[in-house]
Design a protein around this nucleic acid. Structure first.
Lengths: 123, 123
DNA sequence: TTAAGTGTGATATCACAGATATCACACTTA
DNA sequence: TAAGTGTGATATCTGTGATATCACACTTAA
């Protein structure tokens, strides 16, 4: 399936779903007006509760990434990535994590290398 | 005082205390065998419960950053920063945050600049 | 010896978040 | 009409962060 979940991660499940759908849009796998899997189908597939998937979809719609047609389903918005309202929160999380890393004696170069390696895997 | 708390931050209070003490060691303000403020005095000063400060001190001792003399107090360990067992967890948090940032369309250069600016303030 | 100051241990309570479990409802499509 | 969409509401469970009180063992200084 298009999404995989790591139950042992500290990252909440609904955040993992959000991030992976955003990645798929970024990669061009999901394009504007493409239909997302239904929350029930995705929940069944991932062995999760419907409400957990619903939470992810609600966040995405609230952020302007998707839109919903009553009775039909959820779809990728026209300018999904440009609309995305979640960047600020994500940036703040990075800032907090880096500050904590600096306090724990992690070298700047170590972080820079980590960032490089993460972005290298892209596409 | 040597520590300040931001109650509006998503970072737990006891983590803020841990990080700031680690920073003070990193900066050389606190040196090996220096005595830390007592958990009661620090709690009073920061208007926190004793248990919250205790949690921070327990974590620091468990990580090998401090040691305790019964009835006397807590002190900076000989090789506090070298002993520090918390780097792995901090690195994982950075990794998660950067992955989330990438998913949300944050550019690599934006993160690199953020890291640079955070480490620039040092010392 | 006593009083005050250290950290420790245990327990209870509260608030919140993440996740699950069930409902019922309104809408659309075949 | 039946099946499939998302929505809304409620309840429960679990873990975490934080607070509130205890009692205890130890050390230091009066």
């Amino acid at each position: 399936m298009m999404v995989t979940i790591d139950l042992r991660s500290r990252v909440p499940i609904y955040e993992q779903i959000k991030n992976q759908i955003l990645e798929l849009i970024l990669l061009g796998v999901l394009k504007p007006h493409d239909q997302l899997p239904s929350i029930r189908a995705l929940a069944l597939d991932l062995k999760l509760n419907v409400n957990t998937v619903k939470r992810a979809f609600q966040d995405l719609e609230a952020a302007g990434v998707t839109y919903t047609l009553p009775g039909r389903g959820s779809f990728i918005a026209e300018n999904a990535l440009e609309n995305n309202q979640l960047k600020g929160k994500a940036l703040q999380e990075i800032r907090d994590a880096v500050l904590s890393g600096r306090a724990n004696g992690i070298e700047k170069d170590e972080i820079l290398a980590l960032v490089e390696s993460i972005y290298q895997d892209e596409k």
